[in-house]
Simulated scan of single mutants.
Amino acid sequence: MTAEWLTCSDFVTATFSHDFVADGYDHDSVERIHRGDIDEWIHALAQSGLFTNLAVTSASESWRDDPHTLLDALLADADEVTVKRYEVAWDAMDRSTFRAVDEYA
């Protein structure tokens, strides 16, 4: 028997993924995650009681460095159509961000 270590991302998926996708596509949520407004997710992680302070801090730093990792964890159990819808929205936000940066450069 091979033991598998569960990561913080695995627990986030198990804890929050179902609720995240159950209500259908949520543009506001993906937009907030995309711009790095992830405090609600960090708070939920901390309040869940499943994680040490170190794990919450580690997840927080990881998500702040790359918010897409949070979205990946939230969509890990979603069907491929739902994942594609969120990815298309994320890519559109990336393009919009790049255009805005180019306009100010």
Rank of each mutant, 00 (worst) to 15 (best):
T7R: 03
C8E: 08
S48I: 05
D91L: 01
G24V: 01
R32T: 11
D19N: 13
E103F: 08
W41S: 04
S60I: 10
T52A: 03
A55P: 00
Q47L: 14
I42F: 03
Q47V: 00
W90S: 06
G49S: 00
S58L: 04
T57D: 07
P67I: 05
L71R: 11
I42N: 05
R35P: 06
M1V: 10
E80A: 09
R95P: 07
K84M: 11
E61R: 09
E87T: 02
T15P: 01
V88N: 04
E87C: 08
A3G: 04
D102Y: 09
A44F: 06
D23R: 06
W5P: 02
M1L: 07
D72M: 06
H27Y: 04
L50R: 08
I42G: 08
F16G: 05
S17W: 03
H43L: 14
A14M: 02
D102T: 02
V21Q: 02
C8K: 03
S17H: 11
L6V: 00
F11G: 13
A14K: 12
D79G: 13
T69H: 00
S62V: 06
A89D: 11
A89E: 06
S17Q: 12
L54M: 03
L70Q: 06
R64M: 09
V12F: 07
M1Q: 09
F98G: 08
R32E: 02
Q47Y: 05
S60F: 09
S58D: 04
S58I: 00
Q47W: 05
L45K: 05
Q47C: 11
L74W: 11
M93V: 02
A89L: 07
F11E: 04
D37T: 11
Y86E: 13
E103I: 03
S60Q: 07
S96E: 10
A46S: 00
A59E: 08
N53T: 02
G49L: 09
F51Y: 15
T2D: 12
L74N: 04
D37F: 11
A22D: 10
M1G: 15
T82I: 06
H18L: 04
T69Q: 06
S60T: 01
A55Y: 09
A76H: 01
D94I: 14
I38L: 14
T2V: 03
D19H: 00
